[in-house]
Write a protein that binds this DNA or RNA. Structure first.
Lengths: 132, 132
DNA sequence: TACTTGTAATAGTTGAGATAGTACAATAAC
DNA sequence: GTTATTGTACTATCTCAACTATTACAAGTA
């Protein structure tokens, strides 16, 4: 997988790594048991400190996205959310509200933003209770 | 309007003020020309430094959300997005993607998150091209 | 054994966020 | 006019997160 760091972004480097791994897993570009670049490899490639990559991997492991094995590497884990439904709802809804408020101030149409949202949902294959 | 600062939050104080103003404007709780608390008032009430409030107001004015008048106060401005459609789309879509990726990893159903999103849109009265 | 891997710890740099204090300019009320 | 109130501006200082730099170590692989 191809990583890159946007130095112009106000998002921290370790967060950008996390974002990209999560995104690629969600897109199906990274699948279970697939190996990620090593800490030293990626640090070298991106010209940033190994500690920064290590931090990203540590947090990704804590979230259950990857599994790390000293001596062998870091691998994509199983999808397994251990958060309660209530917690997940609160977390996601906070973000949703913030987006909708932004959209309001940008005077973005209701239909337009719904369309964008639907596009994103289609792009990343979210689960469906009933086959859709 | 009632402000509050969550010290447990990892969101900066000045950002929390901005979030709350934007949210209340989007909810219609704050309307055009309505006066906001003075810098010193709000700083005193929230027990934080006046400079922090001043920063929030400065940024809100830069975004066109409020208008400040030395000597009289800060007031809610007209809705007026001066960003191009392309810029707005990029900004909002970045956030939308991030949410959908989160939802994927939390194994939230497609129908469920769509429902949450629709609820948020209804809560904040987004504009509609055709009367809906 | 030799090598690679992730982990950990320490020390230092940089920049954002926030505080503290002061001064100033524009407005409102008298 | 004078006085009080308002937002603005500036400097100095503090704290903390992010990041760098370096070294060492433990666990796995060949």
């Amino acid at each position: 997988m191809q990583f890159h760091i946007d130095n112009a972004s106000n998002r921290a480097a370790y967060q950008q790594i996390i974002d990209q791994v999560k995104r690629d897993v969600a897109l199906g570009r990274l699948v279970k048991d697939e190996k990620l670049p090593t800490v030293r490899q990626l640090a070298n490639q991106l010209a940033i400190n190994p500690n920064t990559i290590a931090k990203s991997y540590r947090l990704l492991e804590r979230e259950g996205i990857i599994v790390t094995k000293p001596g062998s590497g870091a691998f994509v884990a199983n999808l397994d959310s251990n958060l309660s439904r209530a917690v997940r709802k609160k977390l996601v809804n906070n973000d949703i509200e913030r987006i909708v408020v932004e959209a309001f101030h940008m005077q973005i149409d209701k239909q337009i933003i719904l369309e964008w949202f639907n596009n994103a949902i289609d792009k990343f294959n979210l689960t469906t209770k009933k086959d859709g």
